[in-house]
Design a protein around this nucleic acid. Structure first.
Lengths: 359, 359
DNA sequence: TCCTTTCATGTAAACGATTGCAATACCCCT
DNA sequence: AGGGGTATTGCAATCGTTTACATGAAAGGA
């Protein structure tokens, strides 16, 4: 059916070895021969069998990408970034969506990527120690987005810095009662990113001398709907926040929806800041912490290329900067104004801690 | 390094043939032997080499998915749908993003999927006749979303029906001057979906006796930004539309943004209806035509499974229904109201054509 | 008892490349 | 003319399975 290397060899009147060399542009093939082979291959519309090639050479020309969601904006962007640089180097993408817990378990039980890919890219997946172990035991370069794994390449943003900036932005606007919609998941799987951001939130508040109130932290699970209910929960507090930091834009969108449905406005009634700079953030005029999403994908892919080409390079770790994008949903705290139409409360006294931000 | 089938055979004291049969659950293996083999494989933590297996058997356990964008909501949803059913049947996904024109060309020049996948799923890609040809010449089942290709499996929505419903909705609300933001691309590649929807728009207008005005059709290229400028263009007409049908929600979002920035409101000043029921549509309260996106992915994958299992089934073609979702961005035409606060213009005289909708 | 089935297993030939090594041819020096 | 490189090319082993076919044993029937 499809022509094999033997057919090409016969037609070009050389051995299969020469065909192989000629086709892959290896040296030590005379120009005349190479042309003859190329022509023969062309005439037979020959294409190498990737499986045979992989079997013989050990290389697969494929990179496995494992991630928790394919249908979320963030991951789509990252994959697009990965794809663009991998494709340019003729590497294919084998996609593994491990969102479902059982799929996740099966994946690590059988390791279907074993001998199947030249490298692996892991996007933001919470992995147990044993799972990390089996990942590195595949003996191929692994690049990880988000969490750091010893021996693996690594790309991430500075989540602590980004979250701190967000909270500081609110504090600088005069807010003292600052809520947070966290991405801590209901299920047991531990994404680390939300935790880091949450920690930064607490730290910055503490630095500003604002007492910690666990009621101000509502879990949102990173979705619009959950963000909406989290906001509803926060607003139902006896002393609701005047500003809210949502750990993701999606949750911030939900928060804005709740606000709208309750007849409240941002930033007049409640300031809202998100995280990601989702494509819709501009549309909704959401203040947020921007991170270069697709670019992180490109960086991961580039690391893979480095690992694959460079003989014995050490894994690098790159941290890309975040950026505060001020739009319309954050504004000065109402306390700063003479009249305080909503939910009057005792203004907390400035305390003894140092404070860097202006009031 | 990694154990091979020979190691397992040795340890279980059988031949590799028996190992192969035992491991794949083929009949004609005694229970005792099967257990022995399973144990040996377990102890060596043996995993079959997919490449060797593919080479020998001809099956790859992989399905190629080719699409024009990975980072757009629609495609993410579809891929998620595909993934869920393919994964459940232990088929892997090889992702090909052919958004870039040069990548597209290279793809069809080299056919890198040839002998590499058991089936192909094509998402909404505009293909030339020659390209369709090379696709079917791969001799594997092909399932296509959107356009119909002879000999291929097919899933789509009824675009004409959906678009007609959208336009009829506006007409029923009393609108006579109805603009359209079309997805017709600037570049030469011909996605068929936008064209079908555009055609339906014209047809329904004609049926309602509304004269055709090419100025009311603005190209939007399916993005938020382009949708925004298309809306700006429509609003700058001497006689701007009172309602706009955007061929995609993304473009509708852009349209809403333009409206907002110009101080206009939907539906009071201009009614807007989109298409897709994008996750953000609910957030923005956008009236739209809903289509089951992820479900279409599942259907495509299911077709592939049918094609792969069923011996000689004929390709099926399934059309899934769309649904009008009325939200807050469409409302009765202003003309129906006594006062007309914005952009007064010469009310077009009722013309001689038949008219079904109330004024 | 002998012949025919049926079942379990082994043998060895694909599958379609890559690649280390050997072999040849050619060139340049001395 | 002879010797040592160097650039081309071919040979054949190898990668790790699957599978058609052969073999042999056990079982069943007449």
């Amino acid at each position: 059916m499809a022509a094999s290397i033997i057919d090409v060899a016969r037609r070009a009147e050389v051995s299969t070895a020469t065909v192989s060399r000629a086709l892959r542009g290896l040296p030590n093939v005379s120009e005349a021969t190479r042309e003859r082979v190329l022509r023969a291959a062309e005439e037979l519309s020959y294409a190498v069998s990737p499986h045979a090639s992989s079997l013989a050479s050990g290389r697969t020309g494929t990179v496995g990408v494992i991630l928790p969601f394919v249908n979320r904006w963030f991951y789509g962007q990252v994959v697009a970034g990965i794809d663009s640089v991998l494709r340019a180097n003729d590497l294919d993408i084998l996609l593994y969506n491990l969102g479902d817990e059982r799929v996740h378990e099966r994946f690590f039980a059988h390791m279907p990527l074993r001998r199947r890919v030249d490298a692996v890219i892991v996007l933001n997946l919470p992995l147990s120690a044993a799972e990390r172990e089996s990942l590195v035991s595949m003996e191929v370069p692994v690049a990880v987005l988000g969490t750091r794994i010893p021996g693996c390449w690594h790309v991430s943003i500075d989540n602590a810095e980004g979250a701190s900036t967000a909270v500081r932005h609110l504090i600088n606007l005069g807010h003292r009662r600052i809520g947070m919609i966290s991405g801590a998941l209901g299920d047991s799987r531990g994404f680390t990113t939300p935790i880091v951001r949450q920690h930064a939130y607490r730290t910055v508040l503490a630095q500003a001398g604002i007492p910690y109130d666990p009621e101000l932290e509502a879990p949102g699970n990173l979705t619009i709907d959950e963000g909406a209910s989290a906001m509803a929960q926060l607003l139902s507090l006896p002393d609701p926040p005047t500003a809210v930091f949502a750990e993701s834009d999606q949750m911030a969108f939900g928060a804005l929806r709740t606000l709208g449905r309750m007849g409240l406005r941002a930033p007049e009634d409640v300031s809202v800041i998100g995280f990601d700079n989702h494509e819709t953030a501009e549309l909704l005029n959401l203040t947020t912490i921007a991170q270069p999403v697709a670019h992180q994908g490109e960086l991961l892919a580039q690391q893979i290329l480095d690992a694959l080409s460079g003989e014995s390079e050490e894994p690098t770790q790159v941290v890309v900067p975040t950026r505060l994008v001020v739009r319309g949903t954050t504004g000065a705290a109402r306390v700063a104004r003479p009249r305080n139409p909503l939910s009057p409360r005792p203004g907390p006294e400035p305390d003894q801690h140092s404070r860097t931000s202006a009031r």
